[in-house]
Design a protein around this nucleic acid. Structure first.
Lengths: 336, 336
DNA sequence: CTGTTAGCGCATTCAC
DNA sequence: GTGAATGCGCTAACAG
């Protein structure tokens, strides 16, 4: 009943063998009598022996544990990414140690430090909205702990990454709005400096300019915490009398639609709205919100696969995998 | 550049001290010259030394790591629970090792085994829809690894748990529907044998019977994977010409509303609908879906807090914390 | 105050 | 085939 985890030593004693023999039997190494191995395996199963990964780690200098840091886990995208990582981790015999930064650079740095002390074999990170400083990552490098970005990255840090082409997604979305007849599209943007937000903004701007639509700094309003800032942002944007709003994500798209409806606008008749991400709410809101679906699950899978390659094949060049989001057109942006 | 994590030994050599002195200095133990400690701390910081938790674990016999197993992470409830756990883990200096069972009892058992090998200090688990067998938990007990259920539990296993009163939530929800005028309420239920689903069903049934509303086995249709089964379930249920549908969760409630609308029913005029959980989709669907909001974040927090108490105060009686969901009334169930 | 010794659970030489 | 010895990084007695 007590914390009596059975050890290799217990097995050895009961079998009147040496620990090294037992160790070899357990790991199916050659140079061992079949009969002996059978006995060892049998007893191990009977006593419910489980190898102590901690002890193994100390010797092998690898924990088969991957650290993951995400800004907010309770998010459609990140929870799916984590799910994908979990999948790959299982397939390759790795474990996941998880940590949430809460969009704080400080908590993120502390998380990195903690995970380093746990001697993770590698780190997968999607940075917080605040993160600017590359120092924590440089420390990781000099400690020889491989790390990679997924989704939200730090451009000036040399590391592999698996990202989604935000620029292209945004460009496609805005061009689609133009095709549906929009003549004046505004953008409810994310926080400045955040890679994915910057890229979406760039995609919006290029599409608008390519097609000669009006543009001014007022066409863009940045939101930090969009749940709070979105309503005000929309009010500001509506002063330009736009016929299209391109929103940084789906929840803010939903807020936009709801605001427009309550203030007497018709969506998509008067104003078309497009979001970003592929959250379930986008399907459910009325009119259904067009969006650029991000392959969160796949990002998670591919990121961990790449990191494991880096870990196991040692010196590998940094690589970059760019996935694509899929524009899903729904009622909120259709010409009518 | 290589995997050169600096060790206590490196510090000792450079300082011409013994490892034990360095160890003491690092841990702020008494019996050490202030000057010596200063030097050690300084060098440690300079060389970016991080204690090797692996080595410490081997001695302390504790990893300060908690294992968490959830059925599906990409879920409003579980991702919030995880977020709450992350919070508490940070506050108490623990780490979280995460694992998803994908609603499979087999994957769950494998996850338990893996985590046990990682020598987690304790396990927090919400069981899969399939889980029946208590064996994996008994093994955990005999290994002396504390574990607890949160949300979805196995009734016949003796262990602490933090759950939400599903019975009461369901009862309140159905009674509310009756107050709003429903005379014939059907239930789109979850899988049989799953604790939370069984309890919601019980709450539904008791409320219906208490108020003398009609009831028959046909009033209940079970869904395994509701995304697939829900549409058909609704068709069956509608044969009873109900004026109220109590749904096992919000996504299925949304499906119900959408189905009703496309088949010419008015919600809540003809049929009132109530869901369960408090998913964001419930707020967004039209009409907005009444629901019983589950305190996922709090469940996570309280569960980990309780587990940590069990771990640190050793022999503690098993306890049970029952939280309450909050009935949030929206348009989908209002009398009109 | 500081150094020495031993050992956590296991893997890895090397003898036998 | 098998066992004894050594060490991973660190802590915990115990001497000095």
């Amino acid at each position: 009943m007590k914390n009596k985890q059975v050890t290799i030593k217990d097995l050895a004693r009961k079998l009147r063998l040496s620990v090294s023999t037992v160790s070899r039997a357990l790991r199916n190494l050659p140079d061992i009598n079949e009969e002996t191995r059978r006995k060892v395996l049998e007893l191990a199963a009977g006593l419910n022996y489980e190898p102590n990964y901690i002890a193994q780690s100390l010797i092998n200098k690898q924990t088969r544990t991957i650290g993951v840091i995400v800004p907010i886990i309770a998010t459609h995208f990140f929870s799916h990414a984590l799910s994908g990582m979990n999948e790959v981790a299982n397939e390759h015999g790795y474990h996941l140690m998880f940590c949430q930064s809460n969009e704080s650079a400080e908590q993120e740095a502390e998380g990195i430090r903690q995970l380093a002390s746990c001697r993770i074999d590698g780190l997968l990170i999607s940075v917080s909205k605040q993160t600017q400083d590359a120092a924590p990552f440089e420390k990781l490098q000099q400690k020889g702990i491989p790390f990679m970005f997924f989704d939200r990255d730090l451009r000036h840090v040399t590391a592999s990454r698996v990202i989604v082409d935000q620029y292209k997604g945004a460009f496609k979305a805005v061009e689609h709005m133009i095709q549906q007849g929009c003549q004046n599209i505004v953008h409810m943007a994310g926080p400045k400096g955040l890679s994915v937000a910057d890229e979406r903004l760039r995609g919006y701007k290029d599409a608008v300019e390519k097609h000669g639509l009006p543009f001014s700094p007022k066409h863009i309003v940045h939101c930090g915490k969009f749940q709070l800032d979105a309503p005000e942002a929309i009010k500001k944007l509506m002063k330009l009398q736009p016929d299209g709003i391109f929103c940084i994500n789906d929840p803010s798209g939903v807020i936009a639609i709801q605001h427009l409806k309550t203030t007497g606008y018709c969506v998509p008749g008067d104003v078309k709205v497009v979001g970003f991400n592929g959250d379930p709410v986008a399907e459910v809101v009325e009119p259904a919100l067009s969006t650029v679906v991000q392959p969160g699950y796949k990002v998670g899978r591919e990121a961990l696969k790449m990191l494991i390659r880096h870990i196991e094949e040692k010196s590998l060049e940094t690589e970059e995998l760019v996935l694509e989001g899929k524009l899903v057109i729904r009622k909120s942006s259709k010409m009518c």
